[in-house]
Design a protein around this nucleic acid. Structure first.
Lengths: 255, 255
DNA sequence: CTTGACTCTTACCTTACGTCATACCCTATA
DNA sequence: TATAGGGTATGACGTAAGGTAAGAGTCAAG
């Protein structure tokens, strides 16, 4: 017993040797014994104490306070912990307001860089688009179409980048899954969990109208010019993806 | 525009003036202009930059790094903000686990220092107490009494200390208030807002059963030995307090 | 006996400020 | 117009919790 050197302790507890020296000097953790040569040797008891120290350190207590916590029997630990709790709650509050600020800033930024409706339909002749849009609105409701357009337009450029990288993986995986039983549990879960592109396109709610609209849109793209990018996504990929997703959706919906 | 002084900025952003001096010297945030007298003046642009700085700082980025990040011409604000958001959420999670740890520690500490049932009835002859306890249980329900006892026992020593200091002020104030109209708005508010002792004693819900139990208990204490401390509180005070509170409660309840 | 890994102490460096001290600046009021 | 009060600038020193480096002693193995 009592034969842990500084290095051993430092490895066991994951602290630096320097830290041990420091804790020794400040009477926070003394070695149980010193060799004739002045080497520090620690025992089990010291290891336990170090663990205690690290616990409070993890909670951001200053070392001096840890010292009194561990040494002063009259110290009211409970009160200290409650005070600390409050401090942590305050920090959480601050983070919350920061997040709120970020969200507000993001919204204004997005509004600035948001795509215009015309940008959405870039690559399709105006008249055809207008006609299809009117038809779609009467068929699935004006609001549905408008909300889809808003959703599409609200994507920032960064998000579109993400969607692009997601897309190739997602389509591949979907094709793979669709060769099996459409009622497969795994497929269901995959759609629900990993399939955030479609969820975001449809704003979290998969409705037939929205999907149909996307499908029709993609057909138009393919018919007109297969490789014109939509929102930065090669339309061919988007079209294929949406067609597959729609097919899958109707298939799993029917039974 | 461009007329925020250091003090204004410091108040707006919640940082110290010293911090602004520092950021100026290290070229992290320069004032947009200096007056003839050398006063620093900041504009909206600087405020936005400061906001960015604070985001990164909250995430523990070193200031030098923040400097290079913000000065990098390829800096994408939107992407950065989305990154901040994620990181801040993660930080919040960490704080939550820290709070959880503290709570767990507090619970174990409280269990250790919790009073035993016998301690609660210290100062009253066993038989009398037992008889009254049984009577109370049959009258207001076993659970009510047990829950009151649990509540009493769950107070830590520190809390009991607080209650003691609260008590004298509270009783004095109550007596004062009770000389007036019991339906007085001020009294009502006082009971609801300041009167946390009674709320804690009754665990947040003021029920007749619990109050009656306290009152009877205090009578017993007074009858037996007026100054025996209960939970560290001089029983005379406790008794008077509870009697007054009960009286007030029944009075304001009746009409 | 040498070599390489440990260890000691001392001392200076670091980050992101807080806290003076001293002196200047500005404006509102008597 | 003098003065009081607040705000401001610079410089210097202090702080926590170590990191890093220098110079010297120690230990076990080959």
């Amino acid at each position: 017993m009592d034969n842990y050197s500084v290095k051993k302790i430092s490895k066991l507890a994951g602290v630096s040797v320097r830290t041990l020296h420091l804790y020794d000097k400040m009477d926070l953790l003394k070695p149980s014994v010193r060799t004739a040569a002045g080497y520090r040797l620690y025992g089990e008891k010291e290891l336990l104490r170090l663990q205690q120290i690290l616990f409070y350190r993890e909670l951001d207590f200053p070392l001096k306070e840890i010292c009194t916590i561990l040494d002063d029997p009259a110290f009211d630990l409970m009160q200290a912990l409650e005070g600390h709790r409050k401090a942590l709650l305050a920090r959480k509050e601050r983070i919350n307001t920061l997040i709120g600020t970020i969200d507000k800033t993001l919204v204004t930024l997005k509004n600035k860089t948001m795509l215009q409706v015309e940008d959405l339909y870039e690559g399709i002749p105006q008249e055809k688009m207008r006609a299809y849009r009117a038809e779609a609105m009467s068929k699935w409701g004006k609001e549905t179409i408008l909300s889809v357009e808003d959703t599409l337009r609200s994507f920032s450029k960064a998000e579109v980048e993400n969607m692009k990288t997601e897309l190739s993986y997602t389509t591949a995986r979907l094709a793979e899954l669709m060769s099996g039983d459409p009622a497969d549990k795994e497929v269901q879960e995959y759609i629900g969990r990993r399939f955030n592109v479609i969820l975001r396109l449809t704003n979290g709610k998969v409705e037939m109208g929205k999907l149909e609209y996307f499908r029709k849109l993609s057909e138009l793209y393919v018919a007109e010019n297969s490789y014109t990018p939509v929102n930065g996504i090669p339309s061919m990929e988007l079209a294929l993806f949406i067609q597959k997703a729609t097919a899958y959706y109707t298939k799993s919906q029917r039974p």
